[in-house]
C-alpha cells in the first residue's frame, strides 16, 4: 500500500518541515514512512534531520548526468526513510523537475506512506509538482489571515489537479489563541478535518539546532503530543504503489520549466 501526502502551506514560516518530520515519525510507529524534501529550491529538511553532510541528495536524482541511484539518496533516520535535498542553487537550476515523478514513483513502490515536504510557493512547475503528484495534501496553517489565505490558494491548486485535502494542522499556536473557533470557521473552506492544533514551542527551535526532528529531540513536549494526535487522525488509505507510479508516469511531461 502507499499513499502520498504533500505537506503544504503556500506560505513560509508555518513550520512545514517540522510538521513533515513530526508526522513522519509519528506515522512510522505503524507504517513504513518515506519523507522526501520536495522543496528543491529552498531545501532545509536535511538540517532538521541531521543530514547536513549527506553525499547524495534528491538534487543528484533530478540531474541527468549525475547518474545516481534512487537508493543512494535514501537515508534511514529516526525510524523513517529520509530523502534530503541539497541546498546548492546551481544544482537546483540544473535539476529537471519532471524527474521528480520517476523518483517518487520508485520510492512509492516500497513504502506505506510518502510525505513530500513541499515548497512554500506556487510560482513554478517545480514548486507545484509535489502537490500534483500527491494523493492528498496536509495543509499546515498558522491562525493568521495571510497564512489562511495562502493555505486556501495552495488547496485550490491541489484540487485543480485532483489532489484532495486530507486535513489541516494549525501550527505555532500561541497560548492566547483559541483555535477552536477559527478551526470551525476554516472547516467550511478547507477539506478533510482539523488534525491538530500544535502549540508554539521553544523545543522546535532547539530540535532544529540539534539537527533532530521534534519527536526525537523532545518527545514529551506538548507540540510533539499534538503532532502525534494529528498523525493518529490521518486516515492513511490503502493504495496500490503501481497505480501511483502509473499515475505519475502518465501525469507529467518531463520537461524543463
Amino acid at each position: 500500500m502507499v499513499e502520498a501526502f504533500a505537506v503544504a502551506s503556500g506560505k513560509g514560516g508555518t513550520g512545514k518541515t517540522t510538521s513533515t518530520l513530526a508526522l513522519g515519525m509519528a506515522l512510522a510507529e505503524d507504517y513504513d514512512v518515506t519523507v522526501i524534501d520536495a522543496d528543491t529550491g529552498m531545501a532545509n529538511l536535511l538540517f532538521h534531520a541531521g543530514l547536513d553532510d549527506a553525499d547524495v541528495t534528491l538534487h543528484d536524482l533530478l540531474i541527468d548526468e549525475r547518474d545516481a541511484a534512487v537508493s543512494d539518496a535514501v537515508y534511514e533516520r529516526f525510524g523513517m526513510s529520509v530523502v534530503p535535498c541539497g541546498t546548492s542553487l546551481a544544482a537546483f537550476e540544473a535539476a529537471d523537475p519532471g524527474r521528480l515523478r520517476d523518483v517518487v514513483a520508485e520510492l512509492a513502490a516500497d513504502t506505506d506512506v510518502l510525505l513530500l515536504d513541499s515548497p512554500a510557493a506556487l510560482g513554478s512547475k517545480s514548486a507545484v509538482l509535489p502537490v500534483v503528484l500527491a494523493d492528498r495534501i496536509v495543509v499546515v496553517l498558522q491562525p493568521t489571515v495571510p497564512s489562511l489565505s495562502d493555505g486556501l490558494k495552495v488547496q485550490e491548486y491541489a484540487h485543480s489537479y485532483g489532489t484532495d485535502t486530507a486535513g489541516v494542522v494549525f501550527n505555532r499556536v500561541r497560548p492566547d489563541e483559541n483555535v477552536d473557533a477559527i478551526a470551525e470557521q476554516a472547516g467550511r473552506y478547507f477539506g478533510g478535518q482539523t488534525l491538530a492544533s500544535v502549540p508554539e514551542s521553544d523545543a522546535v527551535r532547539a530540535a532544529r539546532r540539534e539537527g533532530k526532528p521534534l519527536l526525537a529531540h523532545a518527545p514529551d513536549d506538548p507540540a510533539a503530543d499534538a503532532f502525534r494526535e494529528a498523525a493518529a487522525r490521518l486516515d492513511v488509505r490503502d493504495g496500490d504503489g503501481r497505480d501511483v507510479a502509473e499515475r505519475f508516469k502518465s501525469a507529467v511531461a518531463p520537461e524543463r520549466i
Partner: peptide, 11 residues
C-alpha cells in the same frame, strides 16, 4: 508548465 493533461476535469 505543460501540466494540462493532469488537471482534474471535475473541479
Amino acid at each position: 508548465w505543460g501540466l494540462d493533461d493532469v488537471l482534474a476535469d471535475d473541479v
